[in-house]
């Protein structure tokens, strides 16, 4: 029965995607991409990927919509479409051919959910078997993410940090300061004059942040972890910026603090790895962090998740402010 759902949601996904591509109003397209992200998260959830669904939720519904709107505020929202039938037709042909190739190959691929598929036979069972023993936390995804493939996750943190540095670098062109700052008093849009969102939002913000922290520290037990937490906390503070104006948010968490968070988080992660080296293990081998290897692993995962969370919060907020500060 769940299959039917799945089919249904997947089809909706395709419909939405087509609508995004066809829509000439960029604002509509952004709205539709919000729907797309929701559908994606649902699909992930149905396919048993709770962590991924939570990430998609935090990113798709909160951060990416805000970023896209922030950018749209600085660009025209109508796409000017000209007739370029030949290019469109050529592209369509190419696209169809690749699609057919993919479909053709799919008949040789293992059926979705087939327990005998190679993916389920080789490396994954080891993770499922060994995690309770070696790391002893319920969420295998977090175990793999934090320890078995912790090096990838380190890379992920640096990807985020790079993007943050990049956005700051690009959008600070032509103006001084680490984060572009403006003359006071600043002219900006906020929802101060809107009583209901203002009141409700202010009530919600602490809960959003608290929930983010909850997600941060329960990554070992349920879906969640540093990245999702960072995105949720950032979303909470972005909400504050929307309500009270971006300047007020900058007063709460000044630019240097944000960049410091981003950099500190990344360095925390890296230094945990280096500490493992100094204590006699391999890079990121948390077992040496405590007398008992399992405890060591747990300590390591908590620390690096904290690093991820800090880095993501700091980076996402820096990016948000960089966009918001770039007035025309």
């Amino acid at each position: 029965m769940i299959v039917v759902f799945s089919l249904f949601l997947l089809s909706l996904l395709v419909v939405t995607a087509i609508a995004i591509v066809r829509s000439e109003n960029l604002f509509s397209a952004v709205m539709l991409s919000g729907i797309f992200s929701l559908l994606m998260a649902l699909n992930f959830f149905i396919l048993d990927a709770a962590d991924v669904a939570l990430t998609e939720a935090a990113v798709g519904a909160g951060v990416s919509t805000v970023l896209l709107l922030g950018a749209l505020a600085l660009t025209p929202t109508e796409e000017r479409r000209r007739k370029r039938e030949r290019k469109v037709a050529a592209t369509l042909v190419t696209v169809t051919m690749i699609f057919l190739a993919i479909s053709y190959a799919s008949f040789d691929q293992p059926r979705i959910g087939d327990p005998d598929a190679p993916v389920h036979r080789h490396v994954a069972p080891w993770y499922l078997e060994q995690t309770p023993e070696l790391i002893d936390i319920p969420n295998v995804v977090t175990a793999v993410l934090g320890s078995f493939r912790g090096y990838d996750t380190l890379g992920e943190v640096y990807v985020v940090l790079t993007a943050g540095i990049g956005v700051l670098f690009l959008l600070s062109a032509g103006r001084p300061g680490l984060l572009p700052h403006r003359r006071e008093p600043r002219i900006e849009s906020s929802l101060k004059s809107h009583l209901i969102p203002h009141v409700v939002g202010r009530v919600l913000i602490p809960f959003i942040v608290l929930f983010g922290l909850y997600v941060q520290f329960h990554g070992e037990y349920g879906p969640g972890g540093g990245f999702q937490a960072g995105a949720i906390i950032a979303a909470g503070i972005i909400l504050f910026a929307l309500l009270e104006g971006e300047g007020a948010a900058l007063k709460v968490l000044p630019p240097r603090v944000l960049v410091g968070l981003a950099i500190g988080g990344a360095l925390l992660y890296l230094l945990v790895g280096v500490a493992c080296m100094l204590l006699g293990g391999n890079f990121l081998d948390y077992s040496v962090l405590a007398a008992d290897p399992v405890t060591g692993q747990q300590i390591g995962i908590i620390l690096i998740e904290l690093g991820v969370g800090l880095a993501v919060t700091g980076t996402l907020l820096s990016i948000f402010h960089a966009f918001a500060a770039r007035e025309q």
Partner: peptide, 16 residues
């Protein structure tokens, strides 16, 4: 609870 709080707020924002 959260749905009942945020739902009308969002609706208000949009309606406004």
């Amino acid at each position: 609870l959260f749905l009942l709080i945020t739902g009308p707020t969002a609706t208000y924002a949009l309606g406004h």
